[in-house]
Amino acid sequence: MATIINPERFGRPFLNAAAYWKGFYRLLGYILKNIGALNVPPVRQVFYRQVYFTGIEALWVVSLIAAFSGMVIAGQITSLAGPNSPFTAKIMLWMLVRELGPLLTAIVIIARSSSAMASELASMKIRGEADSLRMMGVDVMDYLVVPRIAGMTLSVVATTFYFQMTAIVMGFAFVAAAQDVPFLTSMEGVLSILDLTEVLVSLLKAFVFGLVISITSCYYGLSAPRSVTAVPRAATRAVMQNLVSVFFLDGIITYAFFL
């Protein structure tokens, strides 16, 4: 007897996941092939705006989180290991450069920009603005997707680097003020054990996070059905998917390079 395959039997989540991965790789392939679209002035303008919204506007909140993280971690390590301990610099580096820098920056970007990007694209689709762009002869992928992915990825990398520097400087400034540990000595300790690979791998993490966050946000925005309720759903799905992806990828990259 012939079996009729009912897609529902496989479960909606499985089908959604398959559609997500297909869409993700399609967008990834597109951006790799069409990054040259950034040479078109209006596309470059969208790119600059994305960098401004995702990177520059996020700096104050990234600064606050970086400063507090740095202070808490530096304060705790100094209390545990004592002042001038060789472990202080090492743990600071491991925690802030390898892990918390890329991870917390990615979380801030997901909270601020991923939901905004997904809902903006979903709204544009629902309001027929994507069709309007096509009627003007403007390729929707080139104009809406390429600059957003490029802008957000660059912003995550730059903001991560900024987070790492701010956290270390503010952390050591705090222990210098609160626990009388010389600031320059602490900084020298970090710089003496910091190598280029450490920084490059942490920036690679940021790059991968940026790419995944932006592609996922564009995917959920553009795949939203034409219904008003689709906008918040697109934003929620993008945020949840990004959070899961970022933690998963963080584990993979840390395992591959540091364990």
């Binding site: 709204s123 027929g128 603005e129 309007s132 009627m135 003007m136 002869g137």
Partner: peptide, 16 residues
């Protein structure tokens, strides 16, 4: 469509 000028009924302007 680069060679065509379309004036949609509701303007077709981009909201952002």
């Amino acid at each position: 469509f680069r060679r065509i000028g379309v004036v949609p009924e509701h303007g077709g302007l981009i909201g952002n």
